[in-house]
Design a binder for these strands. Sequence first.
DNA 1: AGCTAAAAGTGACCTAAATCACTTTTCAAG
DNA 2: CTTGAAAAGTGATTTAGGTCACTTTTAGCT
Lengths: 190, 190
Amino acid sequence: MEEKLHLLRQHFEELFALTDDQWNFVQSHFQYKSLKKHQFLIQAGQAVNFEYWIIKGLVKAYSIDDKGKEHILQFAMENYWVSDHCAFQHQEPGTIFVDCLEDSEFFCLSLENREKICLEVPAVANFFRIKSNNGYINLQQRILSLLTMTAESRYEYLLNKLPKLIQRVPKKLIASYLGVSRETLSRFNS
Amino acid sequence: MEEKLHLLRQHFEELFALTDDQWNFVQSHFQYKSLKKHQFLIQAGQAVNFEYWIIKGLVKAYSIDDKGKEHILQFAMENYWVSDHCAFQHQEPGTIFVDCLEDSEFFCLSLENREKICLEVPAVANFFRIKSNNGYINLQQRILSLLTMTAESRYEYLLNKLPKLIQRVPKKLIASYLGVSRETLSRFNS
DNA sequence: AGCTAAAAGTGACCTAAATCACTTTTCAAG
DNA sequence: CTTGAAAAGTGATTTAGGTCACTTTTAGCT
């Protein structure tokens, strides 16, 4: 566990250095969780008590429409943060599912604890500020890709951007992420 | 100008209170700008030196594809922040345009100044942290709407969510925002 | 008020991608 | 190693929405 916490500290310190005291304070606000493939981290309709930093593994975050079809909002793997951010932030029942595509391990941060460490340690507030901003930028680019590109070029774009991800994830899930049917994706390129 | 700065202070203090000293420090890092309808705030290919808080007015942020077609990323009005966030954050030439749909006024914040006030005044770091997080949540919902909803229901959804906006913006721009053609939008509902 | 230009509406036709139905391949669990 | 299930591929058909061409309406500007 020491080792895993060290990974989290490194993750924070990629942006801002922390003193040992600060880190000890921060660290004490996380809790560890481990799940097997196919287990749920978050389920629609239930409370979302945490956001999760992924130590190891791979998850998908998705919503299910009225026809039972799955729409993938995000894939998240090592070093990513994942949650039903909307439900978490507003402390409402969730609307999306997050489940494990591989055995996974997490550090869990409650809203209360997040606010506590942000107010106590400014470097942490700045860390989350920068992270959220980068996330925002990524989502803007995804929106632009949905508005401007054909399904096929979105696929090529993703192949270039996250080649390792594609190898870890079934193509039908990639299709769902791109907003295209499994069959159509299968007809693309090579 | 006092009055306009007061609006900005109110905007910050919706989330975290500031002492007068803190506010004076923060305030001194903004500069004022005013533009007429049809003028550009940001142009693709040029440096993006600021992010902008809108005192008054309405702008559209959009990219232009290889066929010359406009795709609207965001509408922004009073109290909104707008920029080419990607180019701004990485201090690269921009890829999108932002221009005024109405005469507009802004407070401009450079990247250097943003980092300065965030590091100096933790409440400001927390302000931007929460704002970015909320922005992230909104974009996730927009992505879900693009993945799960038909063009028509996206339109209805927008009508409900931002009815005032629709009245200030030509329908062909709404169409572009929704990722649907002007003609198709025109055939919806009433 | 009158004029121009932008915006909005509409019909006819076209196309990218969805859907349905089925086959083949791959993978994981006993 | 085998076997059942999930994933992937493929053909035929349908459909939401795009494109083109034109008309009508609305809004700004002298």
